[in-house]
Amino acid sequence: MKVSRRNQIFWIVGAILIIAYAVIPVLWIVSLSFKEGDDITNKSFLPTVWSWENYRTVFASDLFTTALRNSVGMALIATTISVILATLAAYAISRLDFPGKRLVLGVALAITVFPVIAIATPLFNLWRTIGLYDTWLGLIIPYLSYSLPLAVYVLAAFFREIPWEMEQAAQVDGATAWQAFRRVIVPLATPGVFTAAILTFFAVWNDFVFGITLTSSEAARPVPAALAFFQGASQFSQPTAPIAAAAVVVTIPVVILVLLFQRKIVAGLTNGAVKG
């Protein structure tokens, strides 16, 4: 495709505008997190003095560090479980012929449309009876309700793009379906699995509703829910700047994943339709 120079300038300006659109709000919260004292209410984009004060505050409090540990731990476990189960399921859906495979996809779709808030209440009731309330497991299980369908979806789409001739070749060589799966398909599928893991991690990392309804102590409270527990100088003041600092900290993993795996994430979201 030939593109004129004038056209390219047009697209470059567009790209710069879009980058600004995407990062300015993030820079704002970063800037706010470096404000201290009077600067917090200076109503301008940048602080007059850059201060690490708020980061010291949030990291000095158990409240935040425990929540961060909970968030990371639970997100990783939920992601791992989802991706393992989804990989198996997605392989079966895209490769094998068995009755009910449409049902599996249908259920996955139906679950994704159900509002989380609707699941939270019954779970609260059940959890408090069986003792899962305010535990890691008590959050990981509901996380699976949306991370698993998402992973199944992304992976099923990926597996459709895999060159299956290689598997058939392996089978002709006398390998069973299971061996073919393990020796040929797994290596081919790894990039897709990886992408599914990132997208799933984002989804679980984002949780708020389950975090506020199914926890009540530091035992399992994730960061988004913990932000409401920060205290200001007095009981009536809003701890704006420390919240900003905590918000920045939990955004760092997102930015790192995005920087490292930009291409994979885009591919995952567009089902591999975009090459490059």
Partner: peptide, 14 residues
């Protein structure tokens, strides 16, 4: 593409 993914990945509460 990297920039555009930041809002996508950021926590809604944040």
């Amino acid at each position: 593409r990297t920039a555009i993914l930041v809002p996508y990945g950021i926590i809604t509460v944040v």
